[in-house]
Amino acid sequence: MRHLFAAIVLLLSAAPLAAADLRIDPVRSRAEFSVRLLWVSNVSGAFEGIRGDVSIDHAAQTAVVRADIDTESIRMESARLRRWVLAPEFFDAVHYPTIHFESLPTPLMLLTHGGDVAGKLTLRGITQPVTFHLQGNRCPTESLAGCILQLQGMIDRTDFEMRGRRGALSDRVNLGMAIVLEAP
């Protein structure tokens, strides 16, 4: 029995070494989107409500990024455009108040050197695989608090049942996130 108790204590004391979490700073982080309008200009907006975390598995040398974006937090150049993108034909914020991204386990070295981050994006209640490109930064993998993860990607809005105004809007939507990490 004493050996079993010692083994449990050893496992519990080693558990914090296997995974460490960082938070996404909701004040300094942002998410943006843009979509081409009539092949001449872009409709764009910035989301002010982004939160989430990064779970780090030091044993596997991987990290998982989870981010939730409050759809209603979008800021745009005009109130009319804001009402339109929150309406059912685009984000449908009443029924789907959150956009969610979760990466697949990503090598820690990629967080500093940059590269492609695969994951899943849930938008309008539909989950699709996505790949974002992560820009490299100078943060050491041992200490990511204070680092900024900048991700850029593109989705096809029809994959998320956003089919309105197809003659006027491009199907391709650019998405970007600048995530500032902080200790919990």
Rank of each mutant, 00 (worst) to 15 (best):
R36T: 09
R36C: 05
L37Q: 14
L37W: 12
L37C: 09
L37T: 11
L37M: 12
L38I: 07
L38N: 12
W39D: 14
W39S: 15
V40I: 12
V40N: 10
V40A: 12
V40P: 01
S41L: 10
S41N: 11
N42E: 13
N42V: 09
N42T: 13
V43N: 12
V43I: 15
V43K: 12
V43L: 15
S44V: 03
S44R: 13
S44Y: 07
S44L: 07
S44I: 00
G45D: 08
G45S: 09
G45A: 12
G45R: 08
G45Q: 11
G45T: 11
A46T: 14
A46P: 00
F47R: 03
F47G: 08
F47W: 10
F47P: 04
E48H: 02
E48A: 08
E48R: 07
E48D: 10
E48K: 03
G49Q: 04
G49P: 00
G49V: 02
G49S: 05
G49L: 03
I50P: 02
I50C: 04
I50T: 07
R51P: 02
R51D: 12
R51N: 10
G52L: 05
G52Y: 04
G52T: 04
G52S: 06
D53K: 11
D53E: 14
D53L: 09
V54D: 02
V54Y: 02
S55F: 07
S55V: 11
S55Q: 11
S55M: 09
D57M: 01
D57P: 00
D57L: 01
H58Q: 07
H58D: 07
H58Y: 04
A59C: 00
A59M: 03
A59S: 04
A59N: 02
A60Y: 02
A60H: 02
A60P: 01
A60M: 06
A60N: 01
Q61F: 00
Q61G: 01
Q61L: 02
Q61V: 00
Q61P: 00
T62C: 04
T62D: 05
T62V: 10
T62S: 06
A63D: 01
A63E: 00
V64M: 10
V64H: 05
V64G: 07
V64S: 09
V65K: 02
V65G: 06
V65D: 06
V65H: 05
V65I: 15
R66E: 15
R66Y: 14
R66L: 14
R66I: 14
A67E: 05
A67M: 03
A67T: 06
D68M: 10
D68P: 00
D68E: 14
D68V: 08
I69A: 03
I69K: 02
I69M: 06
I69G: 01
D70W: 06
D70S: 12
T71V: 15
T71M: 03
E72K: 10
E72Y: 11
E72A: 14
S73V: 04
S73M: 05
S73I: 03
S73C: 06
I74T: 12
I74P: 05
I74D: 02
R75T: 15
R75S: 14
R75K: 13
R75E: 15
M76F: 09
M76W: 09
M76Q: 10
E77T: 13
E77Q: 14
E77P: 08
S78D: 07
S78K: 08
S78H: 08
S78A: 08
A79Q: 12
R80V: 08
L81I: 13
R82P: 13
R82M: 11
R82I: 10
R82K: 14
R82Q: 13
R82V: 09
